[in-house]
Structures are given as structure tokens and as C-alpha cells.
């Protein structure tokens, strides 16, 4: 293993430890102060067995914080994979290819997509936490403050759209630049085994419905 990988590993470990300490602090704060949108909703409710109702919420919160840790772990792994891909693409693949603008661009897209995925999972962890405990003002400086679910969805959507857009660019570049005379032998089977037409149709319908809900809400508010 090269020294640079040790440096990257050390950085990721430091990041993870910092994240775990910060998360533990938030959990302690949540337990001690007992504040946050979800807890507030329970506190505001007027039911005789309110303490009993707190049990499922407490159990879910405990599991959710473990999930947040796993999300941070996935994000760190994606970050490390980005470096590994850059290393592989530049030092291995590009050594055997001519360093043209098209080649360099194509081989930079995949590491960039994985980096975007690291951002998506990191944002899912940070944003998901704020949906539970409420917006953290200090994160506004880093533009990581999440106000509500719509804010959370908007930012996640743009990151996923960017990654998918890069995929479109990558395929178009391959079609236009990489040995087009051989493409017919590369893509011999023009069927949809992986595209899952039902899944694609469900996704398209759900996105359209959701956009319509937001559009109608906006129209109703006028």
C-alpha cells in the first residue's frame, strides 16, 4: 500500500472519529434537553398514556442513531473509493491510453459520481439528524442547515440529478468518442434486463405525482 493511502485512511479515521464524537454529543444533548421536533410533538400531545407513547419513539431514536453512524461510514467509504478510483483511473488506465481531452474527461466522470454519492450519503446523515432534532444554526455557515423535509429532498434531488446527468454525458461521450465502429460488438444485446421497466415507470409516476402535489400546494397558497 502506498503512503498516500495511509494518509487518506488516517484522514478518514479522523473524520469518522470526529463525526462519532459529534453525534454522541448530539444524542446526549437530545437526552438531557429532551428537545427537537419529534419530542416536542409528543410533549405537546394531550393523552393520558403519554409516557407509554414515548417508548416506541425512544426505541426508534436509538436505532436511528445507529443508522446515522452507518450512513457516515458509507459516506467515508465512498470518499475513500473516490481517491482509489482517481488513483486507478490516472495511474493505471490512462497510462495505456492516449491522454486526449475526451479520454481524460471520461475517466474523471466516474470518480466524480462516487464523490457525489459520498456527498448524498453525508447529507442524508446530517439532514436526517436535523429533521429529528431540529435545524442546527451553526451548520448554516457550511450550508448544511436543513429546515424541513422539502429542503432535505430538494438538495438530495439535485445531487442525484447531477450524478445521473454525468452518466448521460459519459454515455454520450462513449458513443461519440470511443471507437464508434466497434460499438455494435460491445453492445450486442439491446434489451432491458437491467433497466427494469416497471421500476422506471413507478419512479417516473411517483416523481410526477410528487411534483404535482408541490405544484398544487403552491397554487393553493396563492
Amino acid at each position: 500500500m502506498k503512503w498516500i493511502m495511509f494518509v487518506i485512511l488516517a484522514l478518514i479515521v479522523i473524520l469518522l472519529v470526529t463525526a462519532v464524537v459529534a453525534l454522541a454529543g448530539v444524542v446526549i444533548w437530545l437526552v438531557v434537553r429532551r428537545e427537537g421536533p419529534l419530542v416536542d410533538r409528543l410533549r405537546a400531545a394531550k393523552f393520558p398514556a403519554k409516557r407509554l407513547l414515548a417508548l416506541p419513539l425512544a426505541a426508534w431514536l436509538a436505532l436511528f442513531f445507529i443508522i446515522l453512524l452507518m450512513l457516515l461510514f458509507v459516506s467515508a467509504m465512498c470518499l475513500m473509493y473516490t481517491f482509489a478510483l482517481l488513483h486507478g483511473e490516472w495511474l493505471t488506465t490512462l497510462q495505456s491510453l492516449p491522454k486526449t481531452a475526451g479520454n481524460i474527461l471520461i475517466h474523471l466522470i466516474y470518480p466524480l459520481q462516487v464523490f457525489l454519492f459520498a456527498l448524498v450519503t453525508f447529507f442524508m446523515a446530517v439532514g436526517g439528524l436535523q429533521l429529528v432534532i431540529g435545524p442546527v444554526e451553526k451548520l448554516a455557515r457550511l450550508r448544511l442547515r436543513v429546515v424541513d423535509v422539502a429542503d432535505f429532498a430538494r438538495r438530495t434531488a439535485v445531487l442525484i440529478a447531477l450524478a445521473a446527468g454525468l452518466e448521460v454525458v459519459k454515455i454520450l461521450l462513449y458513443g461519440l468518442l470511443v471507437a464508434p465502429e466497434h460499438l455494435s460488438s460491445f453492445f450486442a444485446r439491446e434489451t432491458l434486463p437491467k433497466a427494469d421497466p416497471l421500476g422506471v415507470a413507478l419512479l417516473a409516476t411517483a416523481i410526477l405525482l410528487l411534483s404535482a402535489v408541490f405544484w398544487l400546494r403552491r397554487k393553493g397558497d396563492r
Binding site: 453492445f187 444485446r189 437491467k194
Partner: peptide, 9 residues
């Protein structure tokens, strides 16, 4: 058994 470029696009 690669899936097609067009379906991927």
C-alpha cells in the same frame, strides 16, 4: 450478457 447502451442512456 451486457445490457444495451440505449437502455442505459
Amino acid at each position: 450478457g451486457w445490457h444495451g447502451m440505449l437502455s442505459h442512456l
